[in-house]
Amino acid sequence: MQKFDKLTGVAAPMNMINVDTDMIIPKNFLKTIKRSGLGKNLFDEMRFDREGNEKPDFVLNKPAYREAKIIVAGDNFGCGSSREHAPWALLDFGIRCVISTSFADIFYNNCFKNGILPIKVTKEQLDDLMDDAERGANATLSIDLESQTIQGPDGGKVKFEVDEFRKYLLLNGLDDIGLTLQKVDKVDSFEERQNASQPWLTVVAKV
């Protein structure tokens, strides 16, 4: 997993609520068996018309935002499906950070597991950041995960909260399977205890 410590990049404003996972990556692109390559279809139905031509009004098609690394969006970003294709598509496009007032739980978790930082801010802070993001080429935000701050183009800073453990994993680009496998003794002894108290759980009939 790619580390996340500092990020400076263009922030694209998506001033709408309930951006769901089907909008982020429509399901006809989910048939892949790989994690990469989804970026070209990020926000497909909003970004392209039926003939596959770019819709010029869509924010990521505007010259100033084509290289955006950050998305600033309204409430409840990422609602819908648990599919991880949404963060994969964002990441593959180059988005490393999403800022909103709230996120759907599963999407929020999935971001961390893919090296994307989802940041929750207050409504007032979001309004300010949205204003910043609407400045086109000047819409540059700098995120510093270590100090948990977002710095706007005018130098104003916003502090944000992030879970300590997730921060640690993200800062170090650590994969949590490796971490858990170091605790295999604890899993073994859990299984022993459970097997004694609820033996029926482990006798699943053969398929």
Binding site: S82, R83, N110, K113, I177, T180, L181, V187, E191
Partner: peptide
């Protein structure tokens, strides 16, 4: 509950999941 693919991988490998 539903989990993402990274978590599917975590469960396959460890039979556990990290959750708050």
């Amino acid at each position: 509950f539903g989990i993402g693919t990274s978590e599917v991988e975590h469960v396959l490998a460890t039979q556990t999941l990290l959750q708050s």
